Computed example of a mutant assay.
Amino acid sequence: MLINHDIRCALDRVVHLVNSAPQIQGRERLGDVAALRGFVAQHKVSEVAGLDQGDVGAVQAIRARFTEVFTAPDDATAVSVLNAMIAEAGTTPRLTDHDGYAWHVHYFSPGASLAAHLAADCGMAVAFLVITGERERLRRCEAPTCRRAFVDLSRNRSRRYCDSRTCGNRLHVAAYRARRREAEGAGQPEQQEQQEQAERTARGPEPAEA
């Protein structure tokens, strides 16, 4: 699947946004202005003016909409959420080559708030997955104790965990230990019988009854 740099960056922002919710992390990760500034800096979000507490609530509301898209049961439901979110953001597609990047498209309006910026640009990136028949790449980690979101960009759509080095390894280790316990449990009766047979052989034949 061919995804250009801009779409990949936008999808990374969506994943970070969805995973910042307290239901996922155990606590709110975007709960204040400082956290928003960190998000903007980490993802190099351009054309963001001053942020205040109002932006915090607005971004959290957009996060809830993207979460709906990840959990949507079908394309029609996801499209309904995306269409509403993108329309409310007031998209204004335009070409730009800011900060030395090659020409690319910005969908958010000039002077847009951070929430509108994310709704427009990230919403269009997710829309790209929908129109190319790839929405199922928006996934949740299959580890029982983890519900983190991720975008499966593997060639055969085979990724199951948010991080194979953590969640994936933990499940593989747990499955291996379960198989060992099962094998050891199944082998115990046979081992006990062999031990009893060895003890009978060592004692020799039983004396005949008078």
Rank of each mutant, 00 (worst) to 15 (best):
G90D: 05
A72E: 04
H16D: 13
S158T: 13
H172A: 15
Q195W: 02
E88M: 10
I86M: 07
A76D: 10
D12V: 09
A35S: 09
F150W: 12
R200P: 11
R179C: 02
A84V: 08
Q25Y: 02
R179A: 09
A102I: 11
R65A: 10
R147Y: 03
A10E: 08
H16W: 08
D6I: 08
L171W: 11
R157I: 02
R203Q: 02
V151H: 00
D97C: 10
Q194K: 07
E88C: 08
E136P: 01
Q23M: 15
E28Q: 11
Q42F: 10
A35P: 05
S164D: 13
I131K: 15
G185Y: 04
D99G: 08
Q60V: 06
V33N: 00
T201F: 05
R165P: 12
A183C: 01
C162N: 01
G111C: 07
V81T: 14
E47M: 10
N4Y: 00
I7L: 15
E206S: 12
S164N: 13
F108S: 15
A198C: 01
V33L: 03
G38Y: 00
A178V: 09
V33R: 10
P22C: 03
S113T: 11
I24D: 05
A49K: 07
I3Q: 03
D99K: 10
V173T: 12
N4T: 06
R139H: 02
G187L: 14
Y176R: 14
A143Q: 09
L2D: 09
R159P: 12
G100H: 10
C141W: 05
F128Q: 11
N4L: 07
T166P: 05
L95E: 10
R37V: 05
V45R: 00
A174I: 01
Q191T: 12
A78D: 07
Q194A: 11
V173I: 15
C141T: 03
H43A: 06
S46P: 13
R13V: 04
V45A: 00
A64L: 11
W103D: 14
V105E: 13
R29K: 11
P93V: 08
R157L: 07
Y161M: 10
S46N: 14
I3W: 04
Q188E: 15
G38P: 00
E28N: 09
P189I: 01
G133T: 09
F128L: 07
V79F: 09
N83Q: 05
R159N: 06
V48K: 02
P93Y: 06
E28Y: 00
V45Y: 04
H5W: 06
R165W: 07
Y176A: 14
E199H: 06
L153Q: 08
A208V: 06
A115Y: 03
Q42R: 13
Q191K: 10
T145P: 09
R177W: 00
V18F: 02
A89M: 12
Q53T: 14
D52I: 01
Y101D: 08
F39N: 09
P73A: 07
S46F: 13
L82G: 01
R170N: 02
T77A: 09
G31D: 01
D97N: 07
L30I: 00
Q192F: 11
V126G: 03
P144Y: 02
A87F: 14
H5M: 14
L171R: 15
E209P: 09
V40Y: 00
A41L: 04
D6W: 04
E190K: 00
R65V: 02
